[in-house]
């Protein structure tokens, strides 16, 4: 599905990367530990996380993650948004909890 559909399913606000919403993504992962992302993620272009700090953006860039979705309404600051823009990473923010957000995306076909 497209990143725009991810945003729609999660009723999410787009905080960065509006111009990249047409990119295709086929799977996702949820993690609060960046070391876990580094250890286990291979080709999961959507990351759902409750962690908000610049290292999340950096991890995404290094692991070719195209879209970060912050759960429980969390939002990054301006510095993080700028870093995401520079690195071509889409940032979304949803009110759903991690559990619900993952469940919703999974049930709509995102693996």
């Amino acid at each position: 599905m497209k990143i725009s559909e991810v945003a729609e399913i999660l009723n999410a606000e787009t905080l960065s990367g509006e111009e990249l919403m047409d990119r295709e993504v086929n799977s996702a992962c949820g993690a609060d530990l960046m070391s876990d992302v580094l250890a286990f993620v291979t080709d999961q272009p959507v990351l759902l996380t409750g962690l908000v700090n610049p290292q999340v953006i950096r991890t995404a860039f290094l692991m070719d993650i195209k879209c970060i979705t912050f759960v429980r309404g969390k939002k990054p600051d301006g510095e993080m948004t700028a870093l995401a823009k520079k690195n071509g990473v889409v940032l979304l923010s949803t009110q759903f909890t991690m559990y619900k957000a993952c469940g919703l995306l999974y049930s709509k076909g995102l693996e």
Binding site: D32, L33, M34, S35, D36, L38, A39, L51, N53, Q55, V56, T59
Partner: peptide
């Protein structure tokens, strides 16, 4: 709290 310090760094580097 910052997302690191889970003791996975050196094992990841090895892997």
């Amino acid at each position: 709290d910052l997302g690191f310090g889970a003791g996975m760094g050196l094992p990841n580097m090895k892997k």
